[in-house]
Protein backbone atom coordinates (compact mmCIF):
# COMPACT_ATOMS: atom_id res chain seq x y z
CA UNK A 1 0.00 0.00 0.00
CA UNK A 2 1.37 3.38 -0.96
CA UNK A 3 2.19 5.80 1.81
CA UNK A 4 1.24 9.39 0.90
CA UNK A 5 4.27 11.25 2.16
CA UNK A 6 4.90 14.57 0.43
CA UNK A 7 7.85 13.11 -1.49
CA UNK A 8 5.78 10.13 -2.72
CA UNK A 9 3.09 12.58 -3.81
CA UNK A 10 5.66 14.62 -5.75
CA UNK A 11 6.98 11.41 -7.37
CA UNK A 12 3.43 10.45 -8.44
CA UNK A 13 2.72 13.95 -9.67
CA UNK A 14 5.91 13.93 -11.72
CA UNK A 15 4.98 10.57 -13.26
CA UNK A 16 1.49 11.83 -14.14
CA UNK A 17 2.88 15.04 -15.66
CA UNK A 18 5.47 13.11 -17.64
CA UNK A 19 2.75 10.82 -19.04
CA UNK A 20 0.63 13.85 -19.92
CA UNK A 21 3.56 15.52 -21.71
CA UNK A 22 4.29 12.34 -23.65
CA UNK A 23 0.67 12.15 -24.81
CA UNK A 24 0.74 15.84 -25.69
CA UNK A 25 3.86 15.38 -27.76
CA UNK A 26 2.35 12.52 -29.72
CA UNK A 27 -0.85 14.41 -30.46
CA UNK A 28 1.10 17.60 -31.03
CA UNK A 29 3.03 16.66 -34.13
CA UNK A 30 0.73 18.18 -36.72
CA UNK A 31 2.04 19.65 -39.95
CA UNK A 32 0.24 21.95 -42.34
CA UNK A 33 0.99 20.78 -45.87
CA UNK A 34 0.92 22.50 -49.25
CA UNK A 35 1.91 21.82 -52.83
CA UNK A 36 5.73 21.62 -53.26
CA UNK A 37 5.64 24.89 -55.28
CA UNK A 38 3.73 26.85 -52.60
CA UNK A 39 5.44 29.16 -50.08
CA UNK A 40 5.50 28.46 -46.31
CA UNK A 41 2.86 30.03 -44.09
CA UNK A 42 2.71 31.84 -40.76
CA UNK A 43 0.38 30.66 -37.99
CA UNK A 44 -1.90 33.63 -38.66
CA UNK A 45 -2.14 32.66 -42.31
CA UNK A 46 -3.04 29.08 -41.35
CA UNK A 47 -5.77 30.41 -39.06
CA UNK A 48 -7.16 32.70 -41.79
CA UNK A 49 -7.27 29.87 -44.33
CA UNK A 50 -9.11 27.48 -42.01
CA UNK A 51 -11.62 30.12 -40.86
CA UNK A 52 -12.62 31.08 -44.40
CA UNK A 53 -10.88 34.46 -44.46
CA UNK A 54 -8.44 33.67 -47.24
CA UNK A 55 -9.25 34.59 -50.81
CA UNK A 56 -6.73 32.31 -52.55
CA UNK A 57 -6.10 29.16 -50.59
CA UNK A 58 -8.34 26.10 -50.67
CA UNK A 59 -8.44 24.45 -47.22
CA UNK A 60 -9.14 20.72 -47.08
CA UNK A 61 -10.36 18.88 -43.99
CA UNK A 62 -9.96 15.43 -42.61
CA UNK A 63 -13.16 13.57 -41.68
CA UNK A 64 -14.86 14.79 -38.53
CA UNK A 65 -14.38 11.35 -36.99
CA UNK A 66 -10.58 11.75 -37.16
CA UNK A 67 -9.26 13.04 -33.79
CA UNK A 68 -6.65 15.16 -35.59
CA UNK A 69 -9.39 17.49 -36.83
CA UNK A 70 -10.40 18.82 -33.41
CA UNK A 71 -6.74 18.87 -32.30
CA UNK A 72 -5.70 20.86 -35.38
CA UNK A 73 -8.48 23.46 -35.12
CA UNK A 74 -7.81 23.88 -31.41
CA UNK A 75 -4.17 24.65 -32.09
CA UNK A 76 -4.59 26.68 -35.27
CA UNK A 77 -7.61 28.78 -34.32
CA UNK A 78 -8.15 28.40 -30.57
CA UNK A 79 -11.70 27.23 -31.33
CA UNK A 80 -13.53 23.95 -30.87
CA UNK A 81 -15.34 22.32 -33.81
CA UNK A 82 -18.74 23.80 -32.90
CA UNK A 83 -17.29 27.32 -32.99
CA UNK A 84 -15.49 26.58 -36.24
CA UNK A 85 -18.79 25.43 -37.74
CA UNK A 86 -20.44 28.69 -36.62
CA UNK A 87 -17.67 30.71 -38.28
CA UNK A 88 -18.02 28.74 -41.52
CA UNK A 89 -21.80 29.07 -41.52
CA UNK A 90 -21.22 32.84 -41.66
CA UNK A 91 -19.05 32.28 -44.75
CA UNK A 92 -21.53 29.93 -46.47
CA UNK A 93 -24.67 31.92 -45.75
CA UNK A 94 -23.16 35.21 -46.86
CA UNK A 95 -22.28 33.59 -50.18
CA UNK A 96 -18.55 34.15 -49.63
CA UNK A 97 -17.53 30.52 -49.93
CA UNK A 98 -18.08 26.89 -49.07
CA UNK A 99 -16.83 24.76 -46.22
CA UNK A 100 -13.58 22.87 -46.85
CA UNK A 101 -14.03 19.57 -48.64
CA UNK A 102 -13.57 16.54 -46.44
CA UNK A 103 -11.17 13.70 -47.15
CA UNK A 104 -11.23 10.46 -45.18
CA UNK A 105 -7.63 10.34 -44.00
CA UNK A 106 -4.07 11.68 -44.27
CA UNK A 107 -3.31 9.74 -47.46
CA UNK A 108 -6.29 11.30 -49.27
CA UNK A 109 -5.35 14.78 -48.02
CA UNK A 110 -1.77 14.30 -49.29
CA UNK A 111 -3.05 13.25 -52.72
CA UNK A 112 -5.24 16.36 -53.17
CA UNK A 113 -2.53 18.70 -51.82
CA UNK A 114 0.10 17.16 -54.12
CA UNK A 115 -2.26 17.71 -57.04
CA UNK A 116 -3.48 21.27 -56.50
CA UNK A 117 -1.26 24.32 -55.90
CA UNK A 118 -3.99 26.09 -53.84
CA UNK A 119 -4.86 23.27 -51.47
CA UNK A 120 -3.84 23.47 -47.80
CA UNK A 121 -4.20 20.43 -45.56
CA UNK A 122 -3.07 19.08 -42.20
CA UNK A 123 -1.73 15.64 -41.28
CA UNK A 124 0.24 13.92 -38.53
CA UNK A 125 3.94 14.60 -38.97
CA UNK A 126 4.56 10.84 -39.09
CA UNK A 127 2.48 10.61 -42.30
CA UNK A 128 4.67 13.14 -44.12
CA UNK A 129 6.30 12.19 -47.44
CA UNK A 130 8.08 14.10 -50.26
CA UNK A 131 4.91 14.52 -52.39
CA UNK A 132 3.96 17.54 -50.27
CA UNK A 133 5.75 20.37 -48.49
CA UNK A 134 5.46 21.50 -44.87
CA UNK A 135 4.06 25.05 -44.73
CA UNK A 136 3.81 25.24 -40.94
CA UNK A 137 4.50 22.91 -38.05
CA UNK A 138 2.66 22.77 -34.74
CA UNK A 139 4.90 21.50 -31.95
Amino acid sequence: MATWTPSAFRRHLAAVLLAACACGARAGDIVVIVHPSAPPMTKDEVEDVFLGRSVRAMPVDQARSQPIRAEFYGRATGRDLAQVKAVWSRVIFTGKGLTPKEYPDAAAVKRIVADSPRAVGYIEKSALDPSVKVAYEFN
Binding site: V55, R56, K85, T94, G95
Partner: peptide, 28 residues
Protein backbone atom coordinates in the same frame (compact mmCIF):
# COMPACT_ATOMS: atom_id res chain seq x y z
CA UNK B 1 -10.14 36.70 -60.78
CA UNK B 2 -8.92 35.66 -57.33
CA UNK B 3 -10.22 38.83 -55.75
CA UNK B 4 -13.18 40.05 -57.74
CA UNK B 5 -16.56 38.49 -58.40
CA UNK B 6 -19.76 39.89 -59.84
CA UNK B 7 -23.27 38.68 -58.97
CA UNK B 8 -26.57 39.27 -60.71
CA UNK B 9 -29.98 38.21 -59.41
CA UNK B 10 -31.67 38.29 -56.04
CA UNK B 11 -28.90 38.72 -53.54
CA UNK B 12 -28.01 39.67 -50.01
CA UNK B 13 -28.15 43.35 -48.98
CA UNK B 14 -25.38 43.86 -46.41
CA UNK B 15 -26.77 47.09 -44.95
CA UNK B 16 -25.55 46.48 -41.41
CA UNK B 17 -22.67 44.45 -39.96
CA UNK B 18 -24.73 41.27 -39.47
CA UNK B 19 -27.41 41.84 -42.13
CA UNK B 20 -26.11 39.04 -44.27
CA UNK B 21 -26.41 36.36 -41.57
CA UNK B 22 -29.30 37.75 -39.53
CA UNK B 23 -31.48 34.78 -40.47
CA UNK B 24 -28.83 32.23 -39.52
CA UNK B 25 -29.16 31.92 -35.77
CA UNK B 26 -26.45 29.27 -35.47
CA UNK B 27 -23.88 31.74 -36.82
CA UNK B 28 -24.67 34.21 -34.05
Amino acid sequence: NDELSVRVGRLVLPAFMLSDVRNVGYAQ
